[in-house]
Design a binder for these strands. Structure first.
Length: 302
DNA sequence: CGTTCATCCTGAGAGC
DNA sequence: TGCTCTCAGGATGAAC
């Protein structure tokens, strides 16, 4: 479940069903699912055995479990869901999903944690925890265990206290690139993907290919404000599910798909002006927008 | 700095 | 029925 609301739904499921339990066995199928774990799948399995899950944390689309073996430092079991990854909490006797890549068993012999991913763009790996480079410095951090070293380059997402909308819009304005490209840059602001970028731009009435530098600061602020807003609304409805690929840890779908105004609405009337929503290729993927509410940039880029 | 493009995979749906 | 083509919630690295 790729974007922030969907990943947060999964994180909450992990907090409820996995935190506090002790991992006895981690079974990885093949090498691909653990390809980002440099020492290989066997090392990952071995290092997880006997670990207690202390927390389920997230930044943007990156999810991790803080795990600790008795007497050792905490580490992060990082999970990225990619395009089609799922984390499911299932009884040991439950049938194996077709694209099951990892199974985590617990000392209580209760439900297992399973990683299922049709396309295997996602994966799991173990990483050291380092101090959050974006921590505000004052008071308690939202990430008391820190962040995985591999997540250091990921900027705070709009639902974090460390998120600074003013700073992001300032950095954005300095860019000579399309506004949608900047919104999808996880090192600038994290958690936004193709769906919520299109939705936020529709709400703000900004064409995805407008140059950041050509937009006013208030306009950029509005775009970012809408991005946070639409993701909060989606989270309230359990995320966006188009099919069975995007479900929570119990296999349940979210209900935000019916609330989408542009994404996947090609040809349907714009909710504001009735003009048919258009789809255009952009960054090797698709943008959806209203050609009337979101006029094209006047100057075409070379 | 930026951008485009390819790549990693599987499956669904359209058109022929 | 089957074939080909396009498309899909993402991230990364090469080449320009």
């Amino acid at each position: 479940m790729p974007e922030l609301p969907e990943v947060e739904v999964v994180r909450r499921g992990l907090a409820q069903h996995v935190v506090g339990r002790t991992i006895t066995t981690a079974r990885l199928t093949g090498v691909r699912v653990a390809r980002r774990h440099d020492a290989g799948p066997d090392d990952l399995s071995a290092r997880l055995e006997g670990s207690v899950v202390e927390a389920a944390d997230r930044r943007g689309k990156y999810l991790w479990l803080a795990v600790r073996r008795p007497g050792a430092d905490a580490h992060a079991l990082v999970v990225h869901l990619g395009m089609s990854g799922q984390l499911l909490v299932q009884e040991p006797a439950a049938p194996r999903e077709k694209h099951l890549h990892a199974t985590f068993e617990f000392a209580d012999a209760g439900p297992q944690l399973r990683f299922v991913d049709q396309r295997t763009f996602g994966g799991v790996y173990l990483a050291a925890l380092v101090p959050d480079p974006y921590a505000a410095g004052t008071g308690a951090s939202e990430h008391p265990h820190g962040v995985p070293e591999s997540v250091r380059h990921i900027a705070p997402d709009p639902l974090e206290a460390a998120y600074d909308l003013g700073a992001v819009s300032r950095r954005m304005r300095a860019r000579q690139s399309a506004v949608k490209r900047a919104m999808l840059d996880q090192a600038l602001v994290s958690g936004i993907g193709n769906i919520y970028a299109d939705e936020a731009l529709w709400r703000a009435g900004v064409h995805p290919e407008r140059l950041c530098a050509a937009l006013t600061k208030p306009t950029l602020g509005r775009v970012l404000h809408h991005a946070a807003d639409v993701m909060r609304e989606a989270l309230d409805r359990g995320g966006t599910s188009f099919d069975a690929l995007y479900v929570d840890v119990n296999g349940a779908s979210g209900y935000f798909a019916r609330s989408l105004d542009t994404y996947g609405q090609t040809g349907r009337p714009c909710g504001r002006c009735g003009t048919p929503i258009r789809r255009a290729a952009f960054m090797n993927r698709s943008s959806h927008f209203c050609p009337r509410c979101q006029p094209r940039p006047r100057i075409r880029r070379a």
